[in-house]
Design a protein around this nucleic acid. Structure first.
Lengths: 123, 123
DNA sequence: AAAATACTTAACCAAAAGGTTAAGTCTTAG
DNA sequence: CTAAGACTTAACCTTTTGGTTAAGTATTTT
């Protein structure tokens, strides 16, 4: 069967809960917009909220989701909260994506090699 | 201000609708499980459903979401539907993630350079 | 001390997500 | 030609998500 032609697979990168949080956080365009803003440099909550036609409490919720996912860090400075990006979470998701894509490519190569060596033959 | 120390930013990679679909699709552990299974090789719907404690209609819905996101391709063969991974969508998300991470790193470097040149100076 | 600023928390609401069962629709097997 | 298999679609339900407004809590300004 097809499964057996692949090498033993390397271990997974992140646990399901973390992936749920990070990917769920990234799956919303408002939150991605905030990250885009933060990729330019740190910002306080009101600055972050400014481009969005949305109440501050809504922004606050989005921010909390980004924080829980580990994508954003927040530091209280007096009455303002300065937010900035954290790259680790991105790297983890990148690694996770790369893992599956690499595996898929590996599968194709294995299939090709298999077809080459065993033309018309039995598994 | 901090924003001005960065170079003009390169263009975005994917549009919001597509990112919503792909990231939303990846943000569910059942769907990630299905992709994991498909990374080993193509499978029909019942095979794909087997490890999950869930009805077939539920699996069918998940599959449709993965298809709409461009992550999975389905070919009808008689009464079975053979599903397989499509790598393009992954590459796009990878590129998107890389873009923001790179930018973040760039920001840090710029800030360091800025701090170096303007020690004790005014912003 | 009072008022304004920069938030968060609470309570609420509508829509979307994720699941169910029941009822189709094709295709293959008997 | 029926019956079984491999699905999908429809109708429904519950929980989560993404938003709202109103009220509360620190800080800073006046």
């Amino acid at each position: 069967m097809i499964a057996s032609i692949n090498p033993p697979r390397p271990k997974p990168v992140l646990n399901d809960d973390h992936l749920d949080q990070v990917l769920g956080a990234l799956a919303d365009r408002t939150r991605r917009g905030m990250l885009e803003r933060l990729s330019v440099g740190p910002a306080i909550v009101t600055e972050l909220a400014e481009p969005f036609d949305m109440s501050l409490p809504a922004v606050s919720k989005h921010l909390k989701i980004l924080e829980r996912a580990g994508l954003v860090e927040r530091v209280k400075e007096g009455r303002t909260h300065l937010c900035s990006m954290r790259p680790e979470a991105y790297e983890n998701v990148e690694a996770w994506l790369r893992f599956y894509r690499t595996f898929w490519e590996g599968t194709l190569e294995s299939l090709a090699a298999f077809a080459e060596g065993e033309e018309g033959g039995e598994v």
